[in-house]
Amino acid sequence: LVSAVLTPKQLIERIMEAEPPDIYLLGDIKRPLTEAGVMMSLTRLADKELVHMISWAKKIPGFVELSLLDQVHLLECCWLEVLMIGLMWRSVDHPGQLIFSPDLCLSREEGSCVQGFVEIFDMLVAATARLRELKLQKEEYVCLKAMILLNSNMCLSSSDDGEGGDSGGDGEIKGRSRLLHLLDSVTDALVWVISKTGLTYRQQYTRLAHLLMLLSHIRHVSNKGMDHLHCMKMKNMVPLYDLLLEMLDAHIMHSS
Protein backbone atom coordinates (compact mmCIF):
# COMPACT_ATOMS: atom_id res chain seq x y z
CA LEU A 1 0.00 0.00 0.00
CA VAL A 2 1.28 3.43 -0.97
CA SER A 3 0.19 4.96 2.32
CA ALA A 4 2.18 2.35 4.29
CA VAL A 5 5.51 3.56 2.95
CA LEU A 6 4.89 7.27 3.50
CA THR A 7 5.87 9.05 6.69
CA PRO A 8 3.17 11.27 8.27
CA LYS A 9 5.03 14.31 6.89
CA GLN A 10 5.09 12.86 3.36
CA LEU A 11 1.44 11.89 3.61
CA ILE A 12 0.47 15.43 4.63
CA GLU A 13 2.46 16.81 1.69
CA ARG A 14 0.62 14.51 -0.71
CA ILE A 15 -2.78 15.39 0.77
CA MET A 16 -1.95 19.11 0.60
CA GLU A 17 -0.96 18.74 -3.07
CA ALA A 18 -4.28 16.99 -3.75
CA GLU A 19 -6.25 20.11 -2.73
CA PRO A 20 -8.58 21.25 -5.52
CA PRO A 21 -8.18 24.76 -6.99
CA ASP A 22 -10.61 27.60 -6.25
CA ILE A 23 -13.77 26.93 -8.25
CA TYR A 24 -15.55 29.98 -9.65
CA LEU A 25 -19.23 30.21 -10.45
CA LEU A 26 -18.36 32.45 -13.44
CA GLY A 27 -21.39 34.46 -14.44
CA ASP A 28 -23.15 36.73 -12.02
CA ILE A 29 -26.07 35.55 -9.98
CA LYS A 30 -29.24 37.43 -10.99
CA ARG A 31 -30.34 40.17 -8.60
CA PRO A 32 -32.74 40.56 -6.91
CA LEU A 33 -32.11 37.05 -5.66
CA THR A 34 -34.86 34.50 -6.17
CA GLU A 35 -35.25 30.99 -4.82
CA ALA A 36 -34.75 29.48 -8.26
CA GLY A 37 -31.79 31.77 -9.02
CA VAL A 38 -29.93 30.94 -5.81
CA MET A 39 -30.60 27.21 -6.14
CA MET A 40 -29.45 27.29 -9.75
CA SER A 41 -26.17 28.95 -8.80
CA LEU A 42 -25.55 26.66 -5.83
CA THR A 43 -26.23 23.47 -7.76
CA ARG A 44 -24.18 24.62 -10.76
CA LEU A 45 -21.27 25.30 -8.42
CA ALA A 46 -21.72 22.00 -6.57
CA ASP A 47 -21.66 20.10 -9.87
CA LYS A 48 -18.38 21.79 -10.86
CA GLU A 49 -16.88 21.10 -7.46
CA LEU A 50 -17.88 17.43 -7.64
CA VAL A 51 -15.80 16.93 -10.77
CA HIS A 52 -12.77 18.33 -8.92
CA MET A 53 -13.65 16.24 -5.86
CA ILE A 54 -13.23 13.02 -7.85
CA SER A 55 -9.73 14.15 -8.93
CA TRP A 56 -8.96 15.12 -5.33
CA ALA A 57 -10.00 11.69 -4.00
CA LYS A 58 -7.84 9.95 -6.59
CA LYS A 59 -4.83 11.89 -5.34
CA ILE A 60 -5.31 10.79 -1.71
CA PRO A 61 -2.54 8.18 -1.34
CA GLY A 62 -4.02 4.68 -1.38
CA PHE A 63 -7.49 5.66 -2.58
CA VAL A 64 -7.11 4.28 -6.10
CA GLU A 65 -5.76 1.02 -4.63
CA LEU A 66 -9.21 0.39 -3.15
CA SER A 67 -11.70 -1.51 -5.29
CA LEU A 68 -13.67 0.59 -7.76
CA LEU A 69 -16.86 -0.33 -5.90
CA ASP A 70 -15.37 0.94 -2.62
CA GLN A 71 -14.27 4.18 -4.32
CA VAL A 72 -17.78 4.71 -5.69
CA HIS A 73 -19.44 4.00 -2.35
CA LEU A 74 -17.13 6.26 -0.37
CA LEU A 75 -17.69 9.21 -2.70
CA GLU A 76 -21.43 8.66 -2.89
CA CYS A 77 -21.64 8.66 0.91
CA CYS A 78 -19.46 11.66 1.68
CA TRP A 79 -19.76 14.14 -1.18
CA LEU A 80 -21.97 16.69 0.56
CA GLU A 81 -19.89 16.54 3.75
CA VAL A 82 -16.76 17.20 1.68
CA LEU A 83 -18.47 20.12 -0.07
CA MET A 84 -19.58 21.48 3.30
CA ILE A 85 -16.23 21.28 5.09
CA GLY A 86 -14.71 23.06 2.07
CA LEU A 87 -17.37 25.76 2.35
CA MET A 88 -16.66 26.14 6.08
CA TRP A 89 -12.93 26.41 5.44
CA ARG A 90 -13.44 29.15 2.83
CA SER A 91 -15.83 30.99 5.17
CA VAL A 92 -13.73 30.77 8.33
CA ASP A 93 -12.57 34.41 8.19
CA HIS A 94 -16.01 35.78 7.24
CA PRO A 95 -18.30 35.53 10.29
CA GLY A 96 -21.99 35.31 9.39
CA GLN A 97 -21.36 34.72 5.69
CA LEU A 98 -20.87 31.67 3.54
CA ILE A 99 -18.28 31.86 0.78
CA PHE A 100 -19.60 29.32 -1.71
CA SER A 101 -16.95 30.45 -4.20
CA PRO A 102 -14.70 33.49 -4.56
CA ASP A 103 -17.48 35.01 -6.69
CA LEU A 104 -20.49 33.77 -4.72
CA CYS A 105 -20.80 34.86 -1.12
CA LEU A 106 -24.20 34.82 0.60
CA SER A 107 -25.40 36.42 3.80
CA ARG A 108 -28.07 34.80 5.96
CA GLU A 109 -30.69 37.19 4.59
CA GLU A 110 -29.76 36.33 1.01
CA GLY A 111 -29.85 32.62 1.82
CA SER A 112 -33.30 32.97 3.34
CA CYS A 113 -34.94 33.45 -0.05
CA VAL A 114 -34.67 29.68 -0.50
CA GLN A 115 -37.38 27.91 1.47
CA GLY A 116 -35.97 25.81 4.32
CA PHE A 117 -32.40 26.90 3.62
CA VAL A 118 -31.93 29.29 6.52
CA GLU A 119 -31.80 26.46 9.10
CA ILE A 120 -29.02 24.78 7.15
CA PHE A 121 -27.31 28.14 6.64
CA ASP A 122 -27.30 28.71 10.41
CA MET A 123 -25.89 25.25 11.09
CA LEU A 124 -23.13 25.84 8.55
CA VAL A 125 -22.32 29.25 10.07
CA ALA A 126 -22.26 27.74 13.58
CA ALA A 127 -19.94 24.91 12.54
CA THR A 128 -17.72 27.47 10.78
CA ALA A 129 -17.57 29.52 13.99
CA ARG A 130 -16.35 26.39 15.77
CA LEU A 131 -13.52 26.00 13.22
CA ARG A 132 -12.61 29.63 13.89
CA GLU A 133 -12.69 29.08 17.64
CA LEU A 134 -10.40 26.05 17.29
CA LYS A 135 -8.08 28.05 14.97
CA LEU A 136 -8.11 25.13 12.55
CA GLN A 137 -4.87 24.88 10.56
CA LYS A 138 -4.83 24.01 6.86
CA GLU A 139 -2.91 20.75 7.50
CA GLU A 140 -5.55 19.71 10.03
CA TYR A 141 -8.35 20.68 7.63
CA VAL A 142 -6.99 18.53 4.78
CA CYS A 143 -6.59 15.54 7.14
CA LEU A 144 -10.17 15.91 8.39
CA LYS A 145 -11.46 16.09 4.83
CA ALA A 146 -9.58 12.91 3.89
CA MET A 147 -10.97 11.24 7.03
CA ILE A 148 -14.52 12.19 6.02
CA LEU A 149 -13.95 10.41 2.71
CA LEU A 150 -12.39 7.27 4.19
CA ASN A 151 -14.79 6.99 7.13
CA SER A 152 -17.95 7.73 5.18
CA ASN A 153 -19.37 4.24 4.80
CA MET A 154 -17.68 2.53 7.75
CA CYS A 155 -21.04 1.66 9.30
CA LEU A 156 -22.92 1.01 6.10
CA SER A 157 -24.27 -2.50 5.78
CA SER A 158 -22.47 -4.32 2.99
CA SER A 159 -25.75 -5.81 1.81
CA ASP A 160 -26.42 -2.39 0.30
CA ASP A 161 -24.45 -3.61 -2.72
CA GLY A 162 -27.43 -5.74 -3.57
CA GLU A 163 -25.10 -8.73 -3.47
CA GLY A 164 -25.97 -10.22 -0.12
CA GLY A 165 -24.41 -13.58 -0.91
CA ASP A 166 -21.03 -11.95 -1.31
CA SER A 167 -20.95 -10.15 2.01
CA GLY A 168 -18.10 -11.18 4.26
CA GLY A 169 -16.23 -12.62 1.30
CA ASP A 170 -12.44 -12.57 1.16
CA GLY A 171 -12.22 -9.63 -1.20
CA GLU A 172 -14.52 -7.58 0.94
CA ILE A 173 -12.55 -8.27 4.14
CA LYS A 174 -9.32 -7.29 2.38
CA GLY A 175 -10.97 -4.13 1.10
CA ARG A 176 -12.13 -3.22 4.55
CA SER A 177 -8.72 -3.82 6.09
CA ARG A 178 -7.09 -1.67 3.40
CA LEU A 179 -9.56 1.08 4.12
CA LEU A 180 -8.95 0.88 7.90
CA HIS A 181 -5.22 0.92 7.28
CA LEU A 182 -5.54 4.02 5.13
CA LEU A 183 -7.68 5.73 7.73
CA ASP A 184 -5.05 4.91 10.39
CA SER A 185 -2.35 6.49 8.21
CA VAL A 186 -4.35 9.71 7.96
CA THR A 187 -4.96 9.61 11.72
CA ASP A 188 -1.19 9.27 12.27
CA ALA A 189 -0.70 12.27 10.00
CA LEU A 190 -3.24 14.35 11.92
CA VAL A 191 -1.67 13.36 15.27
CA TRP A 192 1.73 14.36 13.85
CA VAL A 193 0.41 17.76 12.73
CA ILE A 194 -1.06 18.41 16.16
CA SER A 195 2.16 17.32 17.86
CA LYS A 196 4.10 20.05 16.04
CA THR A 197 2.06 22.83 17.64
CA GLY A 198 3.96 22.94 20.92
CA LEU A 199 0.94 21.93 22.98
CA THR A 200 1.20 19.77 26.09
CA TYR A 201 0.24 16.09 25.68
CA ARG A 202 -3.10 16.71 27.32
CA GLN A 203 -3.80 19.69 25.05
CA GLN A 204 -2.80 17.58 22.03
CA TYR A 205 -5.25 14.79 22.70
CA THR A 206 -8.08 17.12 23.65
CA ARG A 207 -7.46 19.01 20.39
CA LEU A 208 -7.59 15.74 18.46
CA ALA A 209 -10.91 14.94 20.15
CA HIS A 210 -12.32 18.40 19.40
CA LEU A 211 -11.33 18.15 15.74
CA LEU A 212 -12.85 14.69 15.35
CA MET A 213 -16.05 15.76 17.11
CA LEU A 214 -16.51 18.37 14.38
CA LEU A 215 -17.11 15.50 12.00
CA SER A 216 -20.35 14.44 13.68
CA HIS A 217 -21.72 17.99 13.21
CA ILE A 218 -20.67 17.99 9.58
CA ARG A 219 -22.41 14.64 9.02
CA HIS A 220 -25.54 16.06 10.65
CA VAL A 221 -25.62 19.21 8.50
CA SER A 222 -24.92 17.12 5.42
CA ASN A 223 -27.92 14.89 6.14
CA LYS A 224 -30.10 17.98 6.55
CA GLY A 225 -28.70 19.42 3.33
CA MET A 226 -29.30 16.18 1.47
CA ASP A 227 -32.96 16.14 2.54
CA HIS A 228 -33.29 19.78 1.50
CA LEU A 229 -31.77 19.16 -1.92
CA HIS A 230 -34.00 16.14 -2.38
CA CYS A 231 -37.07 18.29 -1.57
CA MET A 232 -35.91 20.97 -4.01
CA LYS A 233 -35.54 18.31 -6.69
CA MET A 234 -39.05 16.98 -5.98
CA LYS A 235 -40.42 20.53 -6.29
CA ASN A 236 -38.61 20.89 -9.63
CA MET A 237 -36.96 23.90 -8.10
CA VAL A 238 -33.52 23.14 -9.44
CA PRO A 239 -31.98 22.05 -12.68
CA LEU A 240 -29.79 19.31 -11.28
CA TYR A 241 -26.68 18.75 -13.31
CA ASP A 242 -25.67 15.25 -14.33
CA LEU A 243 -23.02 14.37 -11.76
CA LEU A 244 -24.87 16.13 -8.93
CA LEU A 245 -28.08 14.32 -9.83
CA GLU A 246 -26.28 11.00 -9.92
CA MET A 247 -24.71 11.59 -6.50
CA LEU A 248 -27.98 12.74 -4.97
CA ASP A 249 -29.90 9.76 -6.33
CA ALA A 250 -27.22 7.35 -5.07
CA HIS A 251 -27.44 8.89 -1.61
CA ILE A 252 -31.22 8.68 -1.52
CA MET A 253 -31.00 5.06 -2.66
CA HIS A 254 -28.43 4.13 0.05
CA SER A 255 -30.41 5.77 2.82
CA SER A 256 -33.79 4.30 1.90
Binding site: I54, S55, L75, E76, D242, L243, E246, A250
Partner: peptide, 13 residues
Protein backbone atom coordinates in the same frame (compact mmCIF):
# COMPACT_ATOMS: atom_id res chain seq x y z
CA UNK B 1 -23.33 6.00 -11.62
CA UNK B 2 -22.12 6.48 -15.16
CA UNK B 3 -20.46 9.87 -14.80
CA UNK B 4 -18.82 9.01 -11.47
CA UNK B 5 -17.39 5.76 -12.87
CA UNK B 6 -16.20 7.58 -15.95
CA UNK B 7 -14.34 10.16 -13.85
CA UNK B 8 -12.89 7.52 -11.53
CA UNK B 9 -11.57 5.35 -14.34
CA UNK B 10 -10.13 8.01 -16.65
CA UNK B 11 -6.43 8.64 -16.17
CA UNK B 12 -5.77 12.03 -14.68
CA UNK B 13 -3.33 14.36 -16.39
Amino acid sequence: HTKLLQLLTTKSE
